[in-house]
Write a protein that binds this DNA or RNA. Sequence first.
DNA 1: AATGAATGAGGGTTCATTCAT
DNA 2: AATGAATGAACCCTCATTCAT
Lengths: 219, 219, 219, 219
Amino acid sequence: MQQSKTAIQILKAAEALFSEQGFSETTMRQITAKADVNLAAVNYHFGSKQGLIQAVTEKYMHPFCEYIETVVAERLISLPDRTVSINELIEMVMRALLHVRQDNEHALSMFMRLLDLSYMKNQEALRQYMVNQYHAKLEGFLALLRKDASPMDSDEFFWRLHFLLGSMIFTLSNYHTLIALEQQELEKTSEIEKILHRMIPVISAGFQARSEQNYFCRL
Amino acid sequence: MQQSKTAIQILKAAEALFSEQGFSETTMRQITAKADVNLAAVNYHFGSKQGLIQAVTEKYMHPFCEYIETVVAERLISLPDRTVSINELIEMVMRALLHVRQDNEHALSMFMRLLDLSYMKNQEALRQYMVNQYHAKLEGFLALLRKDASPMDSDEFFWRLHFLLGSMIFTLSNYHTLIALEQQELEKTSEIEKILHRMIPVISAGFQARSEQNYFCRL
Amino acid sequence: MQQSKTAIQILKAAEALFSEQGFSETTMRQITAKADVNLAAVNYHFGSKQGLIQAVTEKYMHPFCEYIETVVAERLISLPDRTVSINELIEMVMRALLHVRQDNEHALSMFMRLLDLSYMKNQEALRQYMVNQYHAKLEGFLALLRKDASPMDSDEFFWRLHFLLGSMIFTLSNYHTLIALEQQELEKTSEIEKILHRMIPVISAGFQARSEQNYFCRL
Amino acid sequence: MQQSKTAIQILKAAEALFSEQGFSETTMRQITAKADVNLAAVNYHFGSKQGLIQAVTEKYMHPFCEYIETVVAERLISLPDRTVSINELIEMVMRALLHVRQDNEHALSMFMRLLDLSYMKNQEALRQYMVNQYHAKLEGFLALLRKDASPMDSDEFFWRLHFLLGSMIFTLSNYHTLIALEQQELEKTSEIEKILHRMIPVISAGFQARSEQNYFCRL
DNA sequence: AATGAATGAGGGTTCATTCAT
DNA sequence: AATGAATGAACCCTCATTCAT
């Protein structure tokens, strides 16, 4: 087997804890206690805490980007003449997220928390690493998105992309808290599929909104 | 004076550091070093690190909520018969943000990072505190928002609210990083006012988007 | 007071342990336990274990070199015409050693262990630091020693210097063990003054020995 | 073959590392990595790290003592009437050192570092082991040395022996550093044979030096 | 004969906090 | 009102060693 049972237990425990508490708030002792393995096992299998974080990064970033790249390529080959709508593109992302999630309920929160971390000011190294590693695979997707958003300036596109990325990152990284709040306030529980689906029209509309002018006299 | 010079220096230093690094990544030593005060001063003036965080919470939450409450009340009195559009409501929020920002460039990032923190699973105490303290002042605003979004189910409203809250929290808490990225990619720098303004149509459109049906057969 | 009581206790405990066990074999926990202070006190007062080692380095190297420099200068002023014999020079060193020892029975062992450490292959940083810091003060002494050893080649001088430095470093850094051995074998105990005195003719004779020729046909 | 290929690789790697870094500074991981064998191999072949150290001890101590014992015996048989000069005795030691060195450039440094270790205060077990194991073989040699040094007191002999042992141990255990220093300062490199030869007159003269009297009034 | 996996003990360091002044 | 000194707890990591195969 490629990964030992212990390594898998560690990953599983780490993902759950990272998902709920974030990375730096999660200690090696918590991870190894939850995984029911020796404290030194993390360093044995992953070299360091940072190595563990990188392992989970790759575990989710790789298939996510791979999925996006593949699906974009397939779409362009099968229907080369038809334009790709924003809705279609966003659906691709949602399907990619479901794809990396597989059967691990903490996968998406942790994945999103990782993206969140990468935008921290003092995490330039992580940011650069992710750009180097994965930017190429996402280029095709971004180009299509940019094309659909053509009437927009580059800076408008930049900010809208991050507004909507923020929606995803915030709601999915805090998924468990929000589910609990929803339960408490509305006595209702949404499955993650439903949440992702709800995001589609909101993000799509946000992207296509007509930008306002003359903001200086407004605010 | 109500607050000693030392306390003010601490607050200023803490806000900058919290804004850039987050709360738990910021140490008392960093804060007191930057503020050029004694290490024990934070505990002396604020009781604990948590006390300091609570102090900055109140410093920004209070005027923010006060502003929203006031402006909503004024609007309802002056034009009681006219409905309040979503755009108008969102603009209120943006003006409230500019109002709490005042002259402190780190204020908004830190404020948003605080909201972010309050959605962490293990921060129920903070969450509860904020609800108890400020929910009443925001009730009027939320009622207006809910009214405009009337054709929506309660759960749809809940999630959209958080999608769009996520946009705000993510982009504003990582404001400095995003500015740097924009500078690097586009050789352009947006002032915070412009960013807030850009958010208005995106959030507004997101709120008003027509929700899709039959999602199960789509994803 | 310049150094707090705790810092002094730490230094005293550290010197004893370093003297008996060497530096890397001595743990912070041993030091703080012996000094009866908190584990974190070393880092508070000296920054790190390395900082503590540097502190003891300076505590002994500084007065030692200062002493040598002063005594050499005085000697040259008071009797400028008389040559300085090797015996006299070596006696200066021995007196300098007694001077740094003062009332601390571990001082000399530790001092010598430090010199020993500085010749380790992977301690180039320490070596360079000591050269930069103290070479100037010892230059005068070395010049006099070199002058007396004039019929020698530079490389012969280099090696003899280290042969005799080795005598000092080995016997003084292992002082306590050797005393114990002497006691055990001969039922006799030498005070450190006597040992230093014994070294004088041996080192002196070693320095002045007539070097052999034609070693290739001998060994 | 008596020793497996793996065991030989381990010994070779360990000797190099022990020679350069000392024993406790050298880790099992460093050894097994350099030897390109499994981490557990050391414990498998030598029982423990201490067992490995004991193995290299015996590898060098045994032939060294054997050599000395043999050569002393041969000398006494072939020329029973002629006294053995100190110079001759010291040359024996040097030839014994060259004999154990064979073709391994790290052998002598490591051997000397071992002797150094055995004088550490907390290494009484090692010290006792070496005395038990090898004292008998060196008795003859020491007796001859003692006879030549007859006008000396026993304690004087004890200390001079260690002064000169210190010369050897220090210069040979730090052989690589000293070679580098010589190269750097004098642009010259001495082979080990030359260094050993240089030691002969120095040690010899040290042993035969006339001891000084009345030291109390001098220092 | 040999090894990948795993472990318990202990390493130095850093944290927020408290105490005595 | 303020601070230098000191602390207990916890941090990540590395060590030599052992176990199951």
